[in-house]
Design a protein around this nucleic acid. Sequence first.
DNA 1: GCCGGATCTTGTAGCGATTTATATCACTCA
DNA 2: TGAGTGATATAAATCGCTACAAGATCCGGC
Lengths: 343, 343
Amino acid sequence: MNYLTNRKTTIRDVAELVGVHHSTVSRALNPGTKDRISPEMVRKIEKAAEKLGYFPNIAASTLKQNRSFALGVLIPDLTNPVFPLIIRGIQDTAEAEGYTVLTANTDDDETKEHDAFKMMSGRSIDGLIVATARRQDSLVDECIKRGLPLVLVNRRVDREGVSGVIVDEDFGICAALDHLMHLGHRKIAHIAGPQYSSTGYERAKAFRDHLTLHNMEADLIEYADKFTVEEGYRTFKQLLVRDNRFTAIVAGNDTMALGCIDAMHKQGLRCPEDISVVGNNDIIFLSRMNPALTTISIPKYEMGSQATRMLLDIINGVPRETMLLRMQPRLIVRSSTAPVVAR
Amino acid sequence: MNYLTNRKTTIRDVAELVGVHHSTVSRALNPGTKDRISPEMVRKIEKAAEKLGYFPNIAASTLKQNRSFALGVLIPDLTNPVFPLIIRGIQDTAEAEGYTVLTANTDDDETKEHDAFKMMSGRSIDGLIVATARRQDSLVDECIKRGLPLVLVNRRVDREGVSGVIVDEDFGICAALDHLMHLGHRKIAHIAGPQYSSTGYERAKAFRDHLTLHNMEADLIEYADKFTVEEGYRTFKQLLVRDNRFTAIVAGNDTMALGCIDAMHKQGLRCPEDISVVGNNDIIFLSRMNPALTTISIPKYEMGSQATRMLLDIINGVPRETMLLRMQPRLIVRSSTAPVVAR
DNA sequence: GCCGGATCTTGTAGCGATTTATATCACTCA
DNA sequence: TGAGTGATATAAATCGCTACAAGATCCGGC
């Protein structure tokens, strides 16, 4: 703290106190250039900085270096329980490396997405983590064109050569289907998530492929427009109109699974007695629900943290082998799935 | 985009294209100074800026103005389901006014809190929203000393004169207790949240006061160290050792209530048949739980949004009457509370 | 026809950091 | 002895924007 004026302490105040040039102070306080200053000088400067309560003005350093030590994160909606853990993974990892995180919700709306990106560009972010990617994504294309370091998380794009941390959706869906078949289910339906998202698309594809492989009916699929409870509800009802002889549902994600269960209850159907349900993501509190939802668990925190590490490596020019890191999900069996019973 | 070099477009590029001085461009593009430039000039400049894909370098403007159009937000932990909605309220409101939000998790740890604040200071935040306040809070004191615009949300401090948006805890607890008494409960216990937090403290105080007023036993209180499921679990067990004749529990918040229910199940007690439980906050999915948790609902999104509006008013020097905005909570009765039965 | 004032635009000087080039040593060694 | 060499420190320029002072332009009015 500068005791005379109200002005914030700057590098020049520190320099004055020590009796050196301010550029020397800059060097001494910067990890990368510290070694060009004599150790005792560094110590003196650090002491003085401490005493004056100096902290760097990041705007000034950003302006000069064109490097902000800030990362952008684009998510659909923070209130969707998948994201808080991913974001904590990102924030914890980023902060440990001295980076600040700017988060924006896009609600899967291209205008909001564009606005958020513009704001982030204005703030000279050093890199971007995108959890909102569509399979064809113009924003991702733009980042690549501009050369902005970019990592995808959760959702991927169709084009190759973009780094990201995603889930082995095939593995998860196969585990779910095997579990259901093991319980005797032979007629299984899928409430698919939006197909513009790789998660929705790949889960539906895995569903079809795996059932086909087992010579089972693979076209009991109804497509939702969003990954929400409401869309799960609506889509399930639609499915029921088409066909009501299935005994199990694989939902595109957990919130949609909850919507399905709501719709079932509304129709007087019971879960799991009449229909078994499997979700996806393993969001919080699922084990406490009624019924406790069987689901495919994905390592959310780890995904955020890995994506951030990846991004920081790209920013720092560290060579990396893996482009697309595919995390292993894990089926968690709870009470929303049960052996099929003759009706 | 500047087509010749790889450099970002600046106001000078725009100025050059239009054939005016760059300071004119700055004026024309700034809402506050736009009226000092002729309308047709403004239009020409805007057109040129658009054409060149110009967007302002916020670091430069921050450096010059000592104003970042960024707000800091301090929360305990994003993965605690109370916060996502509060934060969305903050973000949506802030973004609508052109502000960016920097969020940091403190895990109720003073070191992390201090680090986060230092980072935010370095980024020259224009104001701070604190959801981590302790009743005696040195960080809050520091902000006030420094004159940094500050608004509390959810938790308040003991000292007067600090703006904030909080909940009328007394009202909520009274509603919960009245509900329980109405169901015939005469021996009610409280699993209190940490007393350093105004929420924990005021809820416990309201509990004592209201029961005393009704000439009921008011000291069946056990204090938890954190607002977590685990602490709810531990504290409930502790309470049970002390006294096992209560028929209802008012928990400090929802997560602690869930911990209580876990502990009850572990002890072979049923909720609500043996013991009724009331939570607080109304976090997501409570209505789907088993049993569905009766709780006190607080307007989370609205609180975030109001706090932000308050903060922006302070920043902009708008006079405000209310210092401490007290939101009305609402009891939501579900199936974790039931009439008391003779045992 | 020229002055006073309103209206618009220009010029310039930083904001606080980093960075490149330059200066100043203190030594070594031919 | 004096040029060469590291090792440190200094000077000065710069990042892009805004604010303040000053200049240019135009107009009506006496």
